[in-house]
């Protein structure tokens, strides 16, 4: 089964790096959707099937914290796993976001291996399966 992933980051560079890493990860990826802020992400989530959200925190218009708050209050969207991929270094904030349903946190700069591991762990596929 292929999975659909939404990447939310205002940096096109980061979105491109994450997409490339995911495509090369061996995980069976379906659609990779992009949003440059939380508002765009919510619109995308309401119109597409998404299995995993990878979001930055520091973004214009609607930041990642606001996006997570909105998703946590929506009966459907709150079931979608969220992982933070951000330069955020505050453990206080990370713990706060985990209490709102965030499943994982990856700090920038990240390695392709750490992103791959995060996705495999969150989606519950084994590394062997991901390499098939």
């Amino acid at each position: 089964m292929s999975i659909n992933i939404l990447i939310v980051d205002d940096s096109t560079t980061v979105r491109a790096v994450i997409e490339k890493t995911l495509r090369l990860s061996g995980v069976e990826i379906g659609n990779i959707l992009h949003a440059s802020n939380g508002k765009e992400a919510l619109e995308t989530l309401r119109n597409n099937w998404v299995d995993l959200v990878l979001t930055d925190i520091n973004m214009p218009i609607m930041n990642g914290v606001e996006l997570i708050n909105e998703m946590s209050q929506d009966e459907i969207l709150k079931t979608i796993p969220i992982a933070i991929v951000s330069t955020e270094g505050s453990q206080t904030r990370v713990e706060e976001l985990k209490s709102k349903g965030v499943k994982a946190y990856l700090r920038k700069p990240f390695t392709p291996e750490s992103l791959k591991k995060l996705v495999i762990d969150l989606l519950g596929v084994s590394e062997d399966e991901s390499n098939r």
């Binding site: 520091n58 951000s86 330069t87 955020e88 270094g89 505050s90 453990q91 206080t92 904030r93 920038k108």
Partner: peptide, 14 residues
Amino acid sequence: GNFLTSLAGTEPVF
């Protein structure tokens, strides 16, 4: 982000 963590530690929120 990394500079602020090095300066202030991982507790504060920026």
